[in-house]
Amino acid sequence: MLAADPALSRFDPLPRILTYDNFDHGTNGWTELIGNYDGNGDLSTVDDHMRDFRPPQVSNCTFFDTGTHGALTGDYALKLATRPYVGHTAVAIRRLTMARKGLVQLETHFTYKAEATLGTDAANNSFGGVTWDGNLHPSEAQFGAFTVATDICGDGGLRYHTVMRYRNTTVDNKLDQRWVYPVVPEPTPREHLQGRVKLGYGDDFTAPDPNDWHPASEPMAMCYNEVPTKVNWHYLRWLIDTDARRNVELQINDTTLDLREVPVPVYTDRYDSLENLLNFYFSVRTHSGVRNFLYLDSVLVSVDW
């Protein structure tokens, strides 16, 4: 069945496909994340670091030098775009619930880019220790990080996130290119309301202290393809176990990381109103102040339920 369908044969799903999102058909339920607000809908009550995650765009990957690039197939991809502000993060989320617990797998064909810089300043030929040499391009060091993550809650309000981030550069713009994971749970609006945490606009909402991100891999080069306007699609497959509340493995092209020993921090407090929550999000964060983009050609979520 899968092999007979060119669209699905690009994936390796578990027995039941929950969602298959091809952005030639709109946004498919991927929407901007926002923090929580008060009973009057007063958005000034939203946490500063969770009020501007930017609306996703249905893009045909058009660039200044060659025009329309297009997606892996068809014209369109979902594009997450940051502001040109150091630390700014764009987030798109998809909201499901769990009918059972077990294995859950997310697959995507994706790519990432920093925005092209146009000008006449020779200083633009170097950034973050990368100098244009006809092969390497400073744009690659202007891309910060992208993240794929979940928000899961069940068993009477027990809440946790599984999170994997490709940290292309450290926050001081040095190439790092490792997969990392947070060892603390994400600060929540309730913790802010209770006065336990207060983050700034450009703070990292997933885990604000860089020291709380631990490596899950050695440096892993991607196919950025030199300049900011050439798009090569990558394959990602991420398997988690909602019964064990664990990561299982992460595949990126020809490399598979065993994540079974990666810790998944659980909130000590219980959460109401979230029973069987199963959210997925992608985020992209700029460390350079240059706009960063994450493009998703398609996303498939499957389960063994």
Partner: peptide, 8 residues
């Protein structure tokens, strides 16, 4: 405002 792409 931030650039918004909507070629569709």
């Amino acid at each position: 405002t931030e650039p918004y792409e909507l070629p569709w």
